[in-house]
């Protein structure tokens, strides 16, 4: 869950983002308090707060005074858009670069993509790594 490669607050922010993207946390629904996050992940409450506040600053979450933290309207589509950009930068661009090196044309690449779609037995895990 939490690993040593990066600051924990970034990982907490990402975990919440993931929940919003895959719909586990619906827009306008309340998210757990920073103390609940701290207790659940067994991390320092200040660190958990830093992660949550980052999402507040980004406008993904908003605070209702005295009640708690909620998912902002439109948060999911904004996150999805952001992730699509990331996807393009982190996966598509390196892939096309590599393809060019290997002499794969755009048409061939497109054909390959169609082929993977039709086999569609790829698990989520093997896509991400």
């Amino acid at each position: 869950m939490i690993d040593d490669s990066r600051p924990i607050f970034l990982q907490i922010a990402e975990l919440i983002e993931n929940d919003i993207v895959d719909g586990a946390l619906a827009e306008e629904s309340q998210v757990p308090s920073t103390n609940e996050f701290a207790a659940f992940y067994r991390i320092n409450p200040a660190t958990a707060a830093k992660g949550v506040n980052r999402l507040v600053d980004d406008g993904i979450l908003y605070k209702k005074r005295g009640i708690g933290m909620f998912v902002a309207a439109g948060a999911r589509s904004r996150l999805l858009a952001q992730r699509r950009d990331d996807f393009f930068r982190e996966y598509v661009q390196p892939m096309t670069r590599e393809a060019r090196k290997l002499g794969i044309s755009t048409a061939q690449l497109t054909e390959m993509l169609h082929r993977t779609e039709s086999t569609s037995d790829m698990t989520e895990g093997s896509v991400s790594r």
Partner: peptide, 13 residues
């Protein structure tokens, strides 16, 4: 110990 420490610290910094 760790769990109670985190919880109690959160409630009583």
């Amino acid at each position: 110990f760790y769990d109670r420490l985190v919880e109690d610290f959160a409630a009583h910094p």
